[in-house]
Design a protein around this nucleic acid. Sequence first.
DNA 1: ATCGCCTCCTGCGCGC
DNA 2: TGCGCGCAGGAGGCGA
Length: 271
Amino acid sequence: MPELPEVETTRKGIEPHLAGYSIVSANIRERRLRWPIPHDLEKRIEGQAVVSVRRRGKYLLLAIANGHLLVHLGMSGSLRLVKPDEALLKHDHVTLHLSNDLTLRFNDPRRFGCMLWVEGDPLQHELLCNLGPEPLSEKFSGEHLYQRSRGRKTAVKNFIMDSHIVVGVGNIYASEALFMSGIRPGTASQRISKPRYEILAGNIRQVLTDAIAMGGTTLRDFVGGDGKPGYFQQTLNVYGRKNEPCTACRTAIKHIVLGQRSTYYCPVCQK
DNA sequence: ATCGCCTCCTGCGCGC
DNA sequence: TGCGCGCAGGAGGCGA
């Protein structure tokens, strides 16, 4: 489920209820995620204070006194804050009891997510140290996309979804940003000009910013709610709209597969 | 270095 | 109602 806006919405939602409080106890029911949850995670975090909740790409970084909890939500993961007596749901793999009498639950039906323990600088961890720039940072630009794409034949949609190029562009927003930019998803990366990459970079930034803003509208309900952000209500121009009329020109939206992922575009608006 | 394919897993909606 | 199938918003790892 999580695209970057949902991860950021989750971060904003849990941060005020975690930072400054300590983890009283941890209960782990299922350790078999993408990588196993370390056998000694409980003893590393129990009794420790949470300092901050940051994000790098789609990874969440919970700073604990003597290390970091590195969390990824995969395709189907979610974190939610509940009252301690709230019943466990199917696939609630981890429960953290907090000193403010709230409980954090990690739920992940498909178990593509992860929860790892990192000592030292988490940004130096092997999963994070080679990631591309944050799309909402100044390091991300059309110039960056242009430079990195030289000599690369891979489809531009796969290229912008490569976290080593830029983090946080998931399957939905890749299609949406390419539509906004008038670029065909299957175009070879190296064949796109610098001006078009500048447009694309701006639209990637735009679509993610808007989606995060929408996620923020449901933040007040985060505690005790289902934790679902509102960004999904956002109007999608092409994603999931196979054979439906283009919002700009009414031409039927095309559906293709690129890199084994569903891809949508308007054959008239995108060249 | 780059590319394309495979994989991990459960749940859901669809057609029969 | 049940079953089999295809598909799902991620991304690391592999062989070529």
